[in-house]
Amino acid sequence: MSTITGLGLVLLVLMVLVGGKQGWKSFLSIILNFGFLFFAVILIAFHLPPLAVTIFTGVVILAITIFMGEDDLLTTQTAFYASLIVLAVLILLIIPVEHWAMVQGFGEEDTEDLEGMSILIGINFLKVTVTTTVLSTLGAIAEAAMAISAGLAEVLQNHPQSTGKQLFHSGLSIGENIIGTTFNTLFFGFFGGFLALFIWFVGLGYSFSSIINNKIFVSELIMVLVSFVGVIITVPITSLVMARRKDKVVVDSSSKND
Protein backbone atom coordinates (compact mmCIF):
# COMPACT_ATOMS: atom_id res chain seq x y z
CA MET A 1 0.00 0.00 0.00
CA SER A 2 1.39 3.38 -0.92
CA THR A 3 1.51 6.24 1.57
CA ILE A 4 -1.06 8.24 -0.37
CA THR A 5 -3.56 5.37 -0.19
CA GLY A 6 -2.83 4.91 3.52
CA LEU A 7 -3.34 8.56 4.39
CA GLY A 8 -6.40 8.70 2.14
CA LEU A 9 -7.98 5.79 4.00
CA VAL A 10 -7.22 7.38 7.39
CA LEU A 11 -8.79 10.65 6.22
CA LEU A 12 -11.85 8.85 4.86
CA VAL A 13 -12.41 6.93 8.11
CA LEU A 14 -11.98 10.09 10.21
CA MET A 15 -14.30 12.13 8.01
CA VAL A 16 -17.03 9.50 8.16
CA LEU A 17 -16.57 9.09 11.96
CA VAL A 18 -16.77 12.82 12.62
CA GLY A 19 -19.05 13.94 9.83
CA GLY A 20 -21.24 10.90 9.08
CA LYS A 21 -22.93 11.12 5.69
CA GLN A 22 -21.75 14.72 5.27
CA GLY A 23 -18.17 13.57 5.86
CA TRP A 24 -18.45 10.98 3.13
CA LYS A 25 -19.80 13.62 0.71
CA SER A 26 -17.00 16.04 1.59
CA PHE A 27 -14.40 13.34 0.98
CA LEU A 28 -15.95 12.61 -2.39
CA SER A 29 -15.84 16.32 -3.28
CA ILE A 30 -12.07 16.37 -2.74
CA ILE A 31 -11.60 13.36 -5.02
CA LEU A 32 -13.83 14.91 -7.70
CA ASN A 33 -12.00 18.23 -7.49
CA PHE A 34 -8.73 16.41 -7.97
CA GLY A 35 -10.16 14.65 -11.01
CA PHE A 36 -11.27 17.89 -12.65
CA LEU A 37 -7.98 19.59 -11.86
CA PHE A 38 -6.00 16.81 -13.52
CA PHE A 39 -8.49 16.82 -16.40
CA ALA A 40 -7.75 20.54 -16.87
CA VAL A 41 -4.03 19.77 -17.23
CA ILE A 42 -4.86 17.17 -19.90
CA LEU A 43 -7.22 19.50 -21.77
CA ILE A 44 -4.61 22.26 -21.93
CA ALA A 45 -2.00 19.71 -23.01
CA PHE A 46 -4.32 18.93 -25.95
CA HIS A 47 -4.09 22.63 -26.91
CA LEU A 48 -7.59 23.64 -25.88
CA PRO A 49 -7.71 27.39 -25.13
CA PRO A 50 -6.56 27.77 -21.49
CA LEU A 51 -9.09 30.50 -20.69
CA ALA A 52 -12.03 28.32 -21.74
CA VAL A 53 -10.62 25.41 -19.73
CA THR A 54 -10.19 27.75 -16.75
CA ILE A 55 -13.78 28.96 -16.82
CA PHE A 56 -15.18 25.45 -17.27
CA THR A 57 -13.02 23.92 -14.51
CA GLY A 58 -13.64 26.90 -12.23
CA VAL A 59 -17.42 26.63 -12.45
CA VAL A 60 -17.36 22.85 -11.98
CA ILE A 61 -15.04 22.97 -8.96
CA LEU A 62 -17.10 25.73 -7.31
CA ALA A 63 -20.27 23.70 -7.87
CA ILE A 64 -18.72 20.53 -6.44
CA THR A 65 -17.26 22.26 -3.39
CA ILE A 66 -20.42 24.18 -2.58
CA PHE A 67 -23.21 21.70 -3.37
CA MET A 68 -21.42 18.74 -1.81
CA GLY A 69 -20.43 20.73 1.28
CA GLU A 70 -23.96 21.54 2.52
CA ASP A 71 -27.52 20.30 2.22
CA ASP A 72 -29.45 23.52 2.78
CA LEU A 73 -30.56 24.72 -0.66
CA LEU A 74 -30.89 28.40 0.26
CA THR A 75 -27.30 28.46 1.54
CA THR A 76 -25.76 26.57 -1.35
CA GLN A 77 -27.61 28.31 -4.20
CA THR A 78 -26.85 31.75 -2.83
CA ALA A 79 -23.21 30.83 -2.29
CA PHE A 80 -22.96 29.38 -5.79
CA TYR A 81 -24.43 32.43 -7.57
CA ALA A 82 -22.24 34.76 -5.51
CA SER A 83 -19.09 32.75 -6.16
CA LEU A 84 -19.78 32.78 -9.92
CA ILE A 85 -19.90 36.59 -9.84
CA VAL A 86 -16.67 36.67 -7.81
CA LEU A 87 -15.04 34.26 -10.26
CA ALA A 88 -15.92 36.54 -13.18
CA VAL A 89 -14.56 39.64 -11.40
CA LEU A 90 -11.35 37.82 -10.44
CA ILE A 91 -10.71 36.57 -13.98
CA LEU A 92 -11.04 40.17 -15.19
CA LEU A 93 -8.49 41.21 -12.55
CA ILE A 94 -6.09 38.30 -13.02
CA ILE A 95 -5.66 38.52 -16.81
CA PRO A 96 -4.21 42.06 -16.87
CA VAL A 97 -2.22 41.52 -13.67
CA GLU A 98 -0.52 38.38 -15.00
CA HIS A 99 0.27 40.04 -18.32
CA TRP A 100 1.72 42.96 -16.44
CA ALA A 101 3.79 40.85 -14.04
CA MET A 102 5.02 38.30 -16.61
CA VAL A 103 5.56 35.54 -14.04
CA GLN A 104 4.70 32.70 -16.40
CA GLY A 105 6.45 29.35 -16.64
CA PHE A 106 9.61 28.76 -14.65
CA GLY A 107 12.25 30.81 -12.87
CA GLU A 108 16.02 30.59 -12.70
CA GLU A 109 15.64 28.57 -9.50
CA ASP A 110 13.84 25.83 -11.48
CA THR A 111 16.75 25.28 -13.88
CA GLU A 112 17.97 22.14 -12.11
CA ASP A 113 14.52 20.51 -12.14
CA LEU A 114 14.14 21.23 -15.84
CA GLU A 115 17.34 19.53 -16.89
CA GLY A 116 16.79 17.27 -19.88
CA MET A 117 13.29 18.59 -20.52
CA SER A 118 12.07 20.40 -23.59
CA ILE A 119 10.45 23.67 -22.57
CA LEU A 120 9.45 24.69 -26.09
CA ILE A 121 6.06 23.03 -25.92
CA GLY A 122 4.13 25.59 -27.97
CA ILE A 123 1.61 26.39 -25.22
CA ASN A 124 1.64 29.95 -23.94
CA PHE A 125 2.59 29.71 -20.26
CA LEU A 126 1.28 33.21 -19.65
CA LYS A 127 -2.23 31.88 -20.25
CA VAL A 128 -1.49 28.85 -18.06
CA THR A 129 -0.52 31.21 -15.23
CA VAL A 130 -3.97 32.76 -15.40
CA THR A 131 -5.39 29.24 -15.04
CA THR A 132 -3.27 28.34 -12.02
CA THR A 133 -3.98 31.63 -10.25
CA VAL A 134 -7.73 31.26 -10.77
CA LEU A 135 -7.67 27.63 -9.59
CA SER A 136 -5.70 28.46 -6.47
CA THR A 137 -8.38 30.95 -5.33
CA LEU A 138 -11.42 28.73 -5.95
CA GLY A 139 -11.38 26.93 -2.61
CA ALA A 140 -11.13 30.19 -0.69
CA ILE A 141 -13.99 31.81 -2.61
CA ALA A 142 -16.26 28.80 -2.11
CA GLU A 143 -15.48 28.64 1.60
CA ALA A 144 -16.08 32.34 2.22
CA ALA A 145 -19.29 32.40 0.17
CA MET A 146 -20.64 29.42 2.11
CA ALA A 147 -19.73 30.89 5.49
CA ILE A 148 -21.52 34.16 4.71
CA SER A 149 -24.58 32.61 3.14
CA ALA A 150 -24.96 29.98 5.88
CA GLY A 151 -24.76 32.74 8.48
CA LEU A 152 -27.34 34.84 6.63
CA ALA A 153 -29.66 31.86 6.17
CA GLU A 154 -29.63 31.46 9.93
CA VAL A 155 -30.36 35.18 10.43
CA LEU A 156 -33.30 34.83 8.05
CA GLN A 157 -34.59 31.82 9.94
CA ASN A 158 -34.56 33.67 13.26
CA HIS A 159 -35.72 37.02 11.85
CA PRO A 160 -37.76 36.36 8.71
CA GLN A 161 -38.79 40.04 8.61
CA SER A 162 -35.24 41.38 8.04
CA THR A 163 -35.05 43.87 5.21
CA GLY A 164 -32.54 43.56 2.41
CA LYS A 165 -30.49 46.37 3.90
CA GLN A 166 -30.37 44.71 7.33
CA LEU A 167 -29.31 41.45 5.74
CA PHE A 168 -26.54 43.20 3.85
CA HIS A 169 -25.19 44.69 7.08
CA SER A 170 -25.43 41.34 8.90
CA GLY A 171 -23.45 39.84 6.02
CA LEU A 172 -20.72 42.42 6.42
CA SER A 173 -20.47 41.83 10.16
CA ILE A 174 -20.24 38.05 9.65
CA GLY A 175 -17.52 38.84 7.12
CA GLU A 176 -15.60 40.94 9.64
CA ASN A 177 -15.55 37.97 11.99
CA ILE A 178 -14.22 35.44 9.50
CA ILE A 179 -11.76 37.62 7.60
CA GLY A 180 -8.93 37.40 10.15
CA THR A 181 -8.78 33.62 10.27
CA THR A 182 -9.41 33.23 6.53
CA PHE A 183 -6.46 35.48 5.72
CA ASN A 184 -4.26 33.35 7.92
CA THR A 185 -5.49 30.14 6.30
CA LEU A 186 -4.44 31.55 2.94
CA PHE A 187 -1.16 33.00 4.18
CA PHE A 188 0.00 29.75 5.75
CA GLY A 189 -1.40 27.64 2.93
CA PHE A 190 0.62 29.52 0.35
CA PHE A 191 3.79 30.38 2.27
CA GLY A 192 4.04 27.17 4.29
CA GLY A 193 4.31 25.28 1.01
CA PHE A 194 7.11 27.54 -0.14
CA LEU A 195 9.27 27.25 2.95
CA ALA A 196 12.05 25.62 0.90
CA LEU A 197 12.14 28.50 -1.58
CA PHE A 198 12.38 31.10 1.19
CA ILE A 199 15.22 29.18 2.80
CA TRP A 200 16.90 29.23 -0.61
CA PHE A 201 16.47 33.01 -0.88
CA VAL A 202 17.81 33.77 2.59
CA GLY A 203 20.50 31.10 2.49
CA LEU A 204 21.92 32.28 -0.81
CA GLY A 205 21.82 35.89 0.32
CA TYR A 206 19.27 37.30 -2.14
CA SER A 207 18.87 41.04 -1.67
CA PHE A 208 15.47 42.49 -0.83
CA SER A 209 15.26 44.06 -4.28
CA SER A 210 15.97 40.79 -6.06
CA ILE A 211 13.36 38.96 -3.97
CA ILE A 212 10.56 41.43 -4.70
CA ASN A 213 11.33 41.20 -8.42
CA ASN A 214 11.90 37.43 -8.44
CA LYS A 215 9.66 35.56 -10.86
CA ILE A 216 8.62 32.73 -8.53
CA PHE A 217 8.22 34.89 -5.43
CA VAL A 218 6.13 37.49 -7.26
CA SER A 219 4.01 34.78 -8.83
CA GLU A 220 3.32 33.26 -5.41
CA LEU A 221 2.58 36.61 -3.78
CA ILE A 222 0.19 37.51 -6.61
CA MET A 223 -1.73 34.31 -5.84
CA VAL A 224 -1.95 35.23 -2.14
CA LEU A 225 -3.03 38.82 -2.80
CA VAL A 226 -5.55 37.85 -5.49
CA SER A 227 -7.03 35.30 -3.07
CA PHE A 228 -7.29 38.05 -0.45
CA VAL A 229 -9.13 40.24 -2.97
CA GLY A 230 -11.38 37.31 -3.84
CA VAL A 231 -12.31 36.64 -0.21
CA ILE A 232 -12.90 40.33 0.55
CA ILE A 233 -15.24 40.92 -2.38
CA THR A 234 -17.04 37.64 -1.71
CA VAL A 235 -18.45 39.13 1.51
CA PRO A 236 -20.50 42.04 0.07
CA ILE A 237 -21.38 40.12 -3.11
CA THR A 238 -22.79 37.15 -1.18
CA SER A 239 -24.70 39.52 1.13
CA LEU A 240 -26.19 41.31 -1.88
CA VAL A 241 -27.20 38.07 -3.57
CA MET A 242 -28.85 36.88 -0.35
CA ALA A 243 -30.65 40.23 0.09
CA ARG A 244 -32.03 39.98 -3.45
CA ARG A 245 -33.06 36.33 -3.12
CA LYS A 246 -34.65 36.84 0.30
CA ASP A 247 -38.12 37.93 -0.86
CA LYS A 248 -38.55 34.85 -2.96
CA VAL A 249 -37.40 32.60 -0.15
CA VAL A 250 -39.61 34.21 2.51
CA VAL A 251 -42.63 33.79 0.23
CA ASP A 252 -41.68 30.14 -0.30
CA SER A 253 -41.40 29.33 3.38
CA SER A 254 -44.55 31.22 4.35
CA SER A 255 -46.55 29.37 1.71
CA LYS A 256 -45.17 26.15 3.16
CA ASN A 257 -46.33 27.19 6.65
CA ASP A 258 -49.88 27.91 5.49
Binding site: G19, Q22, G23, K25, F27, I30, T65, L138, G139, L186
Partner: peptide, 11 residues
Protein backbone atom coordinates in the same frame (compact mmCIF):
# COMPACT_ATOMS: atom_id res chain seq x y z
CA UNK B 1 -14.48 20.74 7.10
CA UNK B 2 -15.14 19.89 3.44
CA UNK B 3 -14.79 23.43 2.05
CA UNK B 4 -11.77 24.08 4.28
CA UNK B 5 -9.88 20.99 3.10
CA UNK B 6 -10.70 22.05 -0.45
CA UNK B 7 -9.18 25.51 0.18
CA UNK B 8 -5.80 23.97 1.01
CA UNK B 9 -6.12 21.29 -1.65
CA UNK B 10 -6.62 23.87 -4.42
CA UNK B 11 -3.68 25.95 -3.15
Amino acid sequence: MGPLINVLFMI
